[in-house]
Amino acid sequence: MRTSNPFSNREVREVLEGCRQGLKNEIDGFDKNYILNVSLHDLAEHLISKYKLDVPILQEDQKQVISEGEVVREIPDYGEIRQVKMQSITMAIPFIGDPNLFGIRPSSFYSSWWLLDKPWVTNYTYHLQRQMANTKL
């Protein structure tokens, strides 16, 4: 089970550059006779299936609230620790697509992960993975 914060692994430009470079290297590695004799349709299908990104699509109409309640979090505040009451909601949202893409960070973003801790992230990924396992692609 993944325990890192969502959208915090590799940046999207790194992922896209990796796909672009992999595609270029594969095409550059083809023998000239192979290119002349292969079905362009079959070759295109192969390359698309290998290098496309299967972006997750949330099925928001099927979301379920697993639990909700009030929690108290300790938040660092200028050298002191403050206890802050927060609303905690754990949801399961089914989706189709590649769950690994939830780890990709957008090119520009605002991060407030200080509100999150590992148990929240673990619950988040557990429910996403459990729903993914039950979703047929």
Rank of each mutant, 00 (worst) to 15 (best):
E11Q: 10
G22K: 04
P56M: 04
Q59M: 13
N37P: 01
S111N: 15
K118W: 08
L53R: 03
T135P: 03
P56I: 01
E70K: 06
L137H: 06
E74G: 09
N25C: 13
D28G: 02
N134W: 12
K63G: 06
E80V: 07
T122W: 00
Q64I: 14
D98I: 01
D98M: 00
H41L: 15
G79T: 04
H41W: 15
I89T: 15
S108Q: 10
G22P: 01
V84M: 05
E80D: 09
S107P: 00
K85H: 12
L137W: 06
K52H: 13
E14S: 10
G22W: 06
H127Y: 15
Y51M: 08
V55D: 01
D117M: 12
D77I: 10
R10Q: 14
W114I: 12
V12F: 02
P56K: 01
E60L: 14
E26Q: 11
V55S: 00
V55H: 03
F109G: 03
V38K: 02
M132C: 10
D54V: 09
E60S: 10
R73G: 04
R13L: 09
G103L: 14
I57W: 04
G22S: 08
F95G: 00
P56H: 04
A44P: 00
V55P: 00
D31V: 03
E74P: 02
V38C: 07
T125L: 11
E68I: 06
S67P: 04
L101F: 03
S8L: 02
S107E: 12
D42V: 00
H46T: 11
I104N: 00
M91I: 12
Y51T: 03
R130T: 12
Q131E: 15
I57A: 12
V72A: 09
M86K: 13
V15Y: 03
S67I: 05
V72P: 00
N25S: 14
I75E: 05
T122I: 14
I66N: 09
N33A: 14
V71E: 10
K136V: 12
I35W: 04
S107V: 06
Q87E: 14
K85C: 02
S111Q: 10
G18Y: 05
I89R: 14
E14A: 09
L128F: 04
D54F: 04
S108W: 06
S8V: 01
T122F: 02
G97K: 01
V38P: 00
L36V: 08
Y78L: 13
L116I: 10
I66Y: 09
S111V: 10
Y124N: 01
K118F: 08
T90Q: 14
V15I: 14
L40W: 06
